[in-house]
Design a protein around this nucleic acid. Sequence first.
DNA 1: AATGAATGAGCCTTCATTCAT
DNA 2: CATGAATGAAGGCTCATTCAT
Lengths: 211, 211, 211, 211
Amino acid sequence: MEAKLLRQQVMNDSRRALVLDAARSVFERLGIEGASIREIAKQAGYTPGAIYSYFENKEAIYGALLAESLERLNAAVDAAVHAAGAAGLSPDELLEATARAWFGFYAANPRDLDLGFYLVQGMRPRGLTTELNFQLNDRLHDALRPCEEALQAMGLSPDDALRENTALFAHGVGLLLLQHTGRIRMFGQDATALFKNYVDALLWRLRPAQH
Amino acid sequence: MEAKLLRQQVMNDSRRALVLDAARSVFERLGIEGASIREIAKQAGYTPGAIYSYFENKEAIYGALLAESLERLNAAVDAAVHAAGAAGLSPDELLEATARAWFGFYAANPRDLDLGFYLVQGMRPRGLTTELNFQLNDRLHDALRPCEEALQAMGLSPDDALRENTALFAHGVGLLLLQHTGRIRMFGQDATALFKNYVDALLWRLRPAQH
Amino acid sequence: MEAKLLRQQVMNDSRRALVLDAARSVFERLGIEGASIREIAKQAGYTPGAIYSYFENKEAIYGALLAESLERLNAAVDAAVHAAGAAGLSPDELLEATARAWFGFYAANPRDLDLGFYLVQGMRPRGLTTELNFQLNDRLHDALRPCEEALQAMGLSPDDALRENTALFAHGVGLLLLQHTGRIRMFGQDATALFKNYVDALLWRLRPAQH
Amino acid sequence: MEAKLLRQQVMNDSRRALVLDAARSVFERLGIEGASIREIAKQAGYTPGAIYSYFENKEAIYGALLAESLERLNAAVDAAVHAAGAAGLSPDELLEATARAWFGFYAANPRDLDLGFYLVQGMRPRGLTTELNFQLNDRLHDALRPCEEALQAMGLSPDDALRENTALFAHGVGLLLLQHTGRIRMFGQDATALFKNYVDALLWRLRPAQH
DNA sequence: AATGAATGAGCCTTCATTCAT
DNA sequence: CATGAATGAAGGCTCATTCAT
């Protein structure tokens, strides 16, 4: 009996995941505007009505998509943190490793970047409950926290660490955006290299004693 | 006869501009999603059909809007350059002034930021001919060139200046985005202050002799 | 020029009336549940979207339908009042004539009865603005006012006249409903005859002096 | 074996009643429009599919609901009749008591009124077999019969009693409807008071000897 | 150049109902 | 008997676009 319930639960979850995959795929193929319930359903091999067994409405799908994206982001960052711990890295190296973790994630998965920005700015109506919005915010913050802790470990006050972390995040996001929109080619530059430059300059700047 | 044709041309242009004004106003009021041809026409005092006398389709309107936005951006930057020339600023001060010009423009007109991002990433179908895309790119580049020249005037090689300018632009864009999406509040920071920090650090970094 | 505008106005009105006719016809044919915008459009020879040029939404159609129904009701009552005035009827006869006017209208046009009841009880969502609701209420009241005035002319105080008029209306409505739903056949009775009985009894009751 | 079948029959009936209870509850809570099979099933603790084990379709549920409503109506009337018998009421008092019984039932349970009207006029498609319709008619008639008998006991011929009973029913129904749709507020009147007035006037009218 | 009317494709969503398990 | 999954038709509505006048 229990096995049956469990199996059903698994089935259900996996079908929900299937719809989510379809949504992600449609989203990638047609962009946010073209991603209709009809299209998602078709991609998932369902009729539109069936989608509503798994998600309350269209925006819940995007909410789930974003939530899941943030989980993957955090997983990537956590992996970097653990690897760093195992390797016994210095604070400097830890900052570099954790910054590269989130930056690399978005560089490798530009659609996850889209998702975040679209959901955050484009969805007003009912989408993104305030509560959900906070949850997602928190998860983003979680992914950036290791950088902040590394900055503190390097001797910065909590305030300074927060400020530098914000600037670091902004810098990375700006580069990712330029790369993603193809704007960076216009400058003949490479986002990843520039991000490394920024981190290096930051590390240099935070070593006042060695001047 | 020729005078008549000319007058018609002028009329035509001015009415096209009128439609564009309406579009901008609607766009500001309702955002990119809420801006329909109907609404633009109403705002312009026309019926929907009339719009198609001036623009081939909806996305052409946005293209024109973006083009015009970039003209205003350039005007803002040019004004800063001229003021700097009149005041006889140093290269350092010139960099600060020109960087603040474009950053300030977007900070004050977030819809222009939307416009750029939306058109660049959101519009697949017919929007933005490749040719138009290049033109717009060039105008954006124009707005950033004074910064690049200031960097060269500070002694950087063309390559270095380009690299630093790209990084500067990315940093600003990242901050503007975080501000515009409300994400920066999550960090309890202020975009303008952080931008100034970045420019200051940059100036400091580029004065190696003074260490 | 003016003629042109006028002609357009007339055209527009007549097309709106055409949609209204279609709506009434669909409503009669399929009942309130089956009357969809699609169906109304089809009946009117339009595509669904076109309907929205003439009415803001579905319930506005029903609102207009009801408004127009109440106009016809009032026209019927007014006609009776005028005929009575021309014939110099006594208050007793006037009451009978005006009561018969509204009762007869609904007996002859049972769908108008449906309309009133459906719209009044079935439409919650956005239908029937409070304001419109009041307007319609007023028009219904208008149709019943001549009866009330006749009652006053027979010597009743305003309060008594209002009470008797309400009871009269309720009686008629009850009979019409029983007739319309076929329930009255169950009793082997005739609504019109029973209504006449009620009016006669009422007249009798209000002539205390003659006892 | 037979015992088993019987037990199953009982179970079946009781579960059917459970569904019906759920339907009634949903119907009261959400009205006729908002009552979906989904909602009824949820209320009953079933999944939608299970409902079809007990009822052929949605309208069969409403048919059963109406049937049951009429049973409750009859119970209310019967109770009044028995109480009257025990108290040894006069025919006049009996009329008043039995009339108040059915009127009070509907005044206190307006949803039962809805049910009757909805099923009778709103449901064309498959709802209400002719046969079922007759059965329901009969039960309604049953509930009104005590009034008719009281009228006969007061000396009216069967024909006259039927006519007066029909009028009485119509009057009550009209008042209930006005009350239920809020129309009666428009007149500043109270349905129950007006009903009492009608019954009093009726009693008076039927006592010719005492004039 | 502009209008007014209309189209048609599309949108999100709901729901009674079916059916294999 | 009951479930869980899914269907398919329909619902109201929006909108870019077309075209005769």
